[in-house]
Amino acid sequence: MLTVISFYLLAFVAVAAAFMVVAARNPVHSVMYLILTFFSAAGLFILMGAEFLALLLVMVYVGAVAVLFLFVVMMLDVDFVEMKQGFLSYLPIGALVAIVLLLEMLMVGAAYVAGETKTVVVRETGVSNLEAFGQVLYTDYAGIFEAAGFVLLVAMIGAIVLTLRDRDGVRKQDATAQMARTKETGMEMVDIEPGQGIG
């Protein structure tokens, strides 16, 4: 009973918040609603008994990804009037994407109802969430898992390469050089003649 109430509550909040992500006028508010959506999804995971996945969702998406979203959105100087003007011209593309997504979801749903989907078989029952994950992730799907890791690594290096420029004339700090300074290298004793100053 409590589970059913919780499910409908969380599901309603998730959908309503997802709608508000699009509908909110202020981009920062949009990100806030997005966080609420993630959070409700995590709650749904917990109801399904996938506590590990739920906490991972909170940690990765809410704790890191959404913070970066918020970071970017806050730093941008968004002009609301300009954003509203472009709305109509982007409408056909947006509608196309939405229709394709809807069709895909319907097909998945139809396949599931027809019973043609393949489910992952958990080897042992009675193990914790985490162990069940490990048993599948590092055996059957080890190759795909590592490939995903490599894709992320490449993306990370790519981002660094794109933004790293070696510019001339920039004063940079070298922590090792700073630490290696001694009294002898860091200090110079000068005898100043009266009225001369240091040349």
Binding site: F52, V58, M59, V62, G63
Partner: peptide
């Protein structure tokens, strides 16, 4: 994990 998630 819970403590990590909440503190994040």
């Amino acid at each position: 994990l819970y403590v990590l998630a909440i503190s994040s």
